[in-house]
Nucleic acid binder design. Structure first.
Lengths: 226, 226
DNA sequence: TTCTTCTTTACATTTTCTTTATACTTTAAT
DNA sequence: ATTAAAGTATAAAGAAAATGTAAAGAAGAA
C-alpha cells in the first residue's frame, strides 16, 4: 500500500535502528546513510520521497548537507538533532528544512510529522494514468473514455466493462471471468447480460457495429479487445 | 514587502499580545479571535494566509476548530498548545495541522516556522489563484465566483461545492468523494444533500438548468464539471 | 423577531438494468 | 455441402434504481 521511500542520514547506529523499526511498522521503505557524503549520493541515486537528516554528522555539517540538498532536492527534509538551540533551529528552517525535531524525539510524533508532511506534498503530483488505443483512450484518474477526442457517454456498468476490456487488451476474457468481475460472483451464468452490454458498447465505440474492430467475439469462449 | 495576513485564534490576551508584537516586528499583518467560533468566522471572512491556533479554547475544542477549518481552508495552520501530550500532537497533525508548538515557545523559532511554512506554501499556490472557464471564473483568494463578469451570490456551502468542482475540471467526482470533501466524513451516504445543492447551483450557473453544460451528471457515480 | 441557509421529506422524472422474445451466426457432425 | 444444435445479437418492454425539484421544517444569525 505505502511504497514511499525514506532516506535516513544519521551516524548513530542505534538511532538508525530505532528509525528503521518505526518506519517499517508504518509500511515505509527506507535506506540508510551513515554520513553526509554518502547521504548526498544516496539522495541523488535513489531520489527518496523524504529525508530524515541528523544535524550532527561526523564529516560535513548537517546544515551544509541541507543547503546542498536544497539546490536540487524539492521534497521534504526533516531535521533530527540533539541540539536544542534556537539559533540552530532557525538556521535549519531558513535553509529549507520542513521540520526540526529535538532528540530524544517521540516515535509516534515523528511518524505523525512524516505522514503530515508527505500528505501535503503528495497533493501536488497529479500524474494521469492513461491508456490509448487506435481511436479510443481511457483516463482512469478522471474516469473518462474518449473516442476521437470526444467524451463517450457511458453508464457505470458500460464504463466498468469497457475499462476491463482495455486493461486486458489482446487477451481473450471468458464469459465467466467478465461476469464475475463486473456483476460479482453469483452472476456467472448470466451471459445474456454480457451480450446486451457488449451490444450497446459496440454501438458506441465501433465505426461499424456489425463488423466490430475493437470488441471481438470468440465464439464459445468470450471476448477479446483490440 | 510582506503583506501576508495571519489569524491568531487564542483566548489568552497576553499570548495574543506577545504574538502581535512579534508578528508586527516581522512585518506581518494580523487579526485576532478570542475563541473558536469567532475564529472560524474570521477565517471565512478574511481568508488569512496562515492561522495560529491554540488547542485549549474556551468554547470549542481546538481539534474541532482544526477539523472544521480543514473542510475548506487549504493554507497553513500552526498549532500552539500548553499540552505536550504525544497523543494530542499526533491527532492535530493527522487532522491537518502543518506544525505543532508547545507553549512556552521561543518567539524566534515560531517566526522561523511561520516563514518556512509560508515560503513552501507560496510556491505552490501562486498559479491557481484564478481559474477561468467558459463563462465562469473563480478567484480563490477573494472567494469570488463570477458569471459573465457578474458576481454570483453563493452561500458558503455552494461556494465550497462549486470551487471543488472547478478545481477538478473534467474529472468525474464520486458522490462519496464530494460528500467527504464538503460535509466531512460521516456524511458520505447523504447523497440527497448533494442533489439539492447541485440543483441550486445549476439554477445559478447554467443557462438552461434542464440541459446543464457545466455540472454533468454521471449516473450511478457522481458529477463532472466542464 | 425576521431572514438566510441548511436539512429533511415527498414525490415526479429520468436513467439504467434486467428480462423476454426472436432472429441471426457459428460450429461440428453427417 | 447440409443440417441440427449451440451460441450470439438486437430490440423492446417492464422493473428497479438513481436523480431532480419543490417545499416544509429546523437551526442559526442579524
Amino acid at each position: 500500500m505505502n511504497n514511499q521511500l525514506i532516506l535516513i542520514i544519521d551516524d548513530e547506529p542505534q538511532i538508525r535502528k530505532l528509525l528503521s523499526i518505526n518506519l517499517e511498522s508504518h509500511a515505509f521503505k527506507h535506506i540508510e546513510a551513515e554520513n553526509g557524503e554518502i547521504g548526498l549520493k544516496m539522495a541523488m541515486s535513489h531520489n527518496p520521497d523524504l529525508i530524515l537528516l541528523d544535524i550532527g554528522l561526523p564529516d560535513i555539517s548537517g546544515q551544509e548537507v541541507l543547503k546542498k540538498l536544497r539546490t536540487w532536492f524539492q521534497k521534504p527534509i526533516l531535521i533530527l538533532s540533539v541540539m536544542d538551540s534556537e539559533e540552530e533551529i532557525i538556521k535549519a528552517l531558513d535553509n529549507g528544512a520542513n521540520d526540526y525535531l529535538t532528540k530524544p524525539f517521540r516515535a509516534g510524533e515523528l511518524m505523525a510529522r512524516i505522514r503530515s508532511t508527505l500528505r501535503r506534498n503528495s497533493n501536488l503530483e497529479t500524474k494521469d494514468e492513461l491508456l490509448e488505443f487506435d481511436d479510443l483512450s481511457i483516463n482512469f484518474d478522471s474516469r473518462i473514455i474518449k473516442r476521437n477526442d470526444e467524451i463517450l457517454k457511458l453508464t457505470a456498468t458500460e464504463y466498468n466493462l469497457l475499462s476491463l476490456f482495455m486493461k486486458n487488451e489482446g487477451r481473450v476474457l471468458t464469459h465467466q471471468y467478465i461476469l464475475k468481475e463486473i456483476w460479482g460472483v453469483g452472476h456467472q451464468t448470466d451471459t445474456q447480460y454480457l451480450r446486451v452490454f457488449v451490444g450497446t458498447l459496440r454501438k458506441k465505440i465501433e465505426e461499424n457495429p456489425l463488423k466490430p474492430k475493437h470488441i471481438i467475439t470468440e465464439s464459445g469462449i468470450g471476448y477479446r479487445f483490440c
